[in-house]
Simulated scan of single mutants.
Amino acid sequence: MAGRFMVVPSPIEQEAIVAHIEIQSTKINKALTHQQQQIERLKEYKAILINSAVTGKIKVA
């Protein structure tokens, strides 16, 4: 495989890249957790709404 080479960032650049990835990964994980919590709350609200409609607690037009 003559003629092929690979550019490797310096150790300082590698550390900066890893730090950036970790920060972004943390943000993504927080956003996913928030979305999952919202989904669970909406499922609970849906169940309560259906129950209220079925038992006549709310009027459905």
Results as ranks from 00 to 15, higher is better:
Ala2Thr: 12
Gly3Ser: 12
Arg4Ile: 12
Val7Lys: 05
Val8Arg: 00
Pro9Thr: 03
Ser10Phe: 00
Ser10Cys: 02
Ser10Asp: 04
Pro11Tyr: 04
Pro11Ser: 07
Pro11Phe: 02
Glu13Cys: 04
Glu13Asn: 06
Glu13His: 04
Glu13Gln: 12
Gln14Val: 13
Gln14Trp: 08
Glu15Phe: 06
Glu15Asp: 15
Glu15Lys: 15
Ile17Val: 09
Ile17Asn: 13
Ile21Phe: 05
Ile21Cys: 03
Gln24Ile: 08
Gln24Pro: 00
Ile28His: 01
Asn29Ser: 08
Lys30Thr: 07
Lys30Cys: 12
Lys30Asp: 06
Ala31His: 05
Leu32Thr: 10
Gln35Met: 13
Gln35His: 04
Gln36Phe: 11
Gln36Arg: 12
Gln36Met: 14
Gln38Leu: 15
Ile39Gln: 13
Ile39Arg: 07
Glu40Ile: 09
Arg41Gln: 15
Leu42Pro: 04
Lys43Cys: 11
Tyr45Phe: 07
Tyr45Pro: 01
Tyr45Arg: 09
Tyr45Glu: 07
Lys46Asp: 02
Lys46Gln: 06
Ala47Glu: 05
Ala47Ile: 08
Ile48Thr: 03
Ile48Arg: 05
Ile50Met: 01
Asn51Ala: 02
Ser52Thr: 01
Ser52Gln: 05
Ser52Pro: 01
Ser52Phe: 11
Val54Arg: 10
Val54Ser: 01
Thr55Met: 08
Ile58Asp: 08
Ile58Glu: 10
Ile58Ala: 10
Lys59Arg: 08
Val60Arg: 12
Val60Asp: 08
Val60Thr: 13
